[in-house]
Design a protein around this nucleic acid. Structure first.
Lengths: 253, 253
DNA sequence: ACCAGGGTTTCCGCCTGGCGGAAAAGTGAC
DNA sequence: GTCACTTTTCCGCCAGGCGGAAACCCTGGT
């Protein structure tokens, strides 16, 4: 799911209310007044005031000099203990740095969550093609390079779930035919590389490879994203594979 | 505070209980059984079971194939919205990369929280002196390079608070005399650089500079940490200042 | 100086749902 | 089969979470 389960309809538990306060924040709303937060969480102002007090006391939120509320440091400290985020980033950082040095293009690391990818790290090339992704962004799997990798190696029921849902189109080149996607996924499994050519934006092509955990499961995917014009995926593939393999080895330690 | 306010003594609110579940995790306990989590949170097992259910549903926790509970991806997604963490890291990443390329030593970025520093980013030099810090670690301010910077430029009452508390000794060279520390802080403010020489470990010296926000306040500190033997802080200072200034400029945009 | 329209904070009666002890069920090692 | 842990379920109790209302605050406009 994109957002934690804090649907406003029906009775909500105390926990759900507290977590709904946290879900009021997003990339477009990083700083909120108490009243705005209450509206976004669909809670009465006095309830929100009380819950915000609890979160402020714990460090889940901070109140700025401007009176606005923001996500706090302690929440991040706890979240940093998630193995699929900071731990993965730390294991990946040297190899991502190497891949960046080798290509000077955007380098991205993502994990799967349900039927979506979540980007956990990226190095943005200064002169590289602009990319939509930012750390913490969640995105459908079927169009991006990393998404294709993660879907290809996902459990069968996840693949069937993704293939039976309507596939979202982002450009005229986005693959939205399930049969074609199924075929692409088989190809990704065979070659150990995914190429997404102008499926997300019309100027970007990405090449992605799987990152495996200690027991061989695919736990993340690594990609470079380059200008589609003049791109040579076959030339990029070895470097991406090598970097992904290095991350896999780092995770095995 | 180091840990969110979830003291186990006395009556606890529903919010405090939920947050105590999250606080059960730390760097040494990233994966926990339900029973272990209940013990660490000082909650009855059935209460913990219910709260864990709420967090699993929201994405704050995940249950692995091994049955163990871990901090989940959605918590990190929310935490990634904290301006003092991912946002700061992203602004800092190019300059930290440059400083690393220039020195090939450990590069660290930290923010102040109360009377402690929290490390929000680091680049570990492959052949550099081992450092204690990891991302998400919190540490007293007075001994580290970044801590000296953050303390020097903190509001007066924060400085007085730090100076009136007993200063913790880590090595025989740790400054624990408040008068001497006060003098060092004045020096840091004057020179815009802090040097911590073997105050944390006996083999490391760090050089740190302030990172300023758009309104000129010191919002973070950047440092390199090198082998103390043969270290030339004066030679390192310009590069650290330059990188810190670049981050300050990035934050002003 | 006043007003309006937002905001935040406080109060407190209501009643629901959070709480946790007990028991049942599950798991793995021996 | 036993043991020691684990996880899950049940359900009676009552505490505290809830939120409407009101008070108070702040800022910008006139």
């Amino acid at each position: 799911m994109g957002e934690g389960s804090t649907a406003a309809d029906g009775p909500r538990t105390a926990s759900a209310r507290l977590l709904a306060v946290l879900d009021a924040f997003d990339a477009e709303h990083r700083a909120l007044t108490l009243s705005a937060l209450a509206r976004r969480a669909r809670l009465p102002v006095s309830t929100t005031h009380r819950l915000v007090g609890d979160l402020l006391a714990w460090g889940g939120l901070e109140r700025g000099d401007d009176g606005l509320l923001r996500v706090g440091l302690h929440l991040w400290e706890v979240a940093a203990l998630a193995p699929r985020t900071i731990g993965l980033r730390e294991a990946a950082a040297p190899s991502m740095g190497d891949l960046y040095e080798a290509t000077h293009e955007n380098v991205q690391l993502a994990v799967r969550d349900g039927l979506e990818v979540v980007f956990v790290e990226r190095i943005a090339g200064r002169h590289a093609v602009p990319v939509l992704t930012r750390v913490g962004l969640r995105f459908p799997m079927s169009a991006t390079g990393v998404g294709l990798v993660l879907l290809a190696f996902a459990p069968r029921e996840v693949q069937e779930g993704a293939l039976s849902a309507p596939l979202e189109r982002f450009t005229e080149r986005t693959v939205v035919d399930p049969r074609r996607l199924r075929s692409m996924l088989a190809d990704v499994r065979r070659r150990g590389i995914a190429v997404s050519d102008r499926q997300v934006t019309m100027d970007a092509l990405s090449v992605a490879a799987p990152v495996r955990g200690p027991d061989g499961d695919v736990v993340a995917a690594l990609s470079v994203v380059v200008q589609a014009d003049g791109a040579e995926p076959q030339a990029l593939a070895p470097a991406v594979r090598t970097a992904a393999a290095a991350i896999s080895r780092a995770l095995a330690r």
